[in-house]
């Protein structure tokens, strides 16, 4: 049970990082922490104590195996996270080029 709670703690740390930090790069890192917390949680759901990988091997009967579906789903979700992070970094570089700062409080041309 405690590992699930730790995942939620990690999620909240990431959320805090996104909401409170002023540096754009730190916000992107915070988003990464959120994603990893969710992915970790998803993988832990499929974990079985003393389970093994669900791969057929010669002359072995598999009695207790780890649920492979969350692992496949997390792989997809990691790729999505990669795409989002790359896009955000590219936008952050562009923002630095236009505004000359990474400080989110100084990047406020849009309001109202």
């Amino acid at each position: 049970m405690s590992e699930y709670i730790l995942c939620f703690v990690l999620f909240c740390i990431g959320l805090y990082c996104v909401l409170r930090k002023r540096n754009i790069i730190k916000i992107i890192i915070g988003l990464g922490i959120i994603e990893y917390a969710v992915n970790l949680f998803f993988v832990l759901i499929g974990y079985r104590a003393h389970g093994r990988a669900p791969i057929l091997a010669k002359d072995q009967a598999i009695l207790n195996m780890v649920d492979p579906l969350p692992q496949a789903l997390v792989l997809t979700s990691i790729v999505i996270g990669l795409a989002v992070t790359a896009l955000l970094v590219a936008i952050a570089i562009r923002i630095y080029e236009k505004y000359g700062t990474f400080d989110i409080t100084k990047i406020r041309r849009l309001r109202g």
Binding site: T76, V79, I80, A83, A86, I93, E97
Partner: peptide, 21 residues
């Protein structure tokens, strides 16, 4: 990200279309 130079008109297409793997 490495070759990034200012004023370069370069659109990024980052979507990996990963509904597949």
């Amino acid at each position: 990200l490495v070759l990034f130079t200012p004023l370069e008109i370069n659109r990024f297409n980052k979507d990996n279309g990963n509904n597949s793997n």
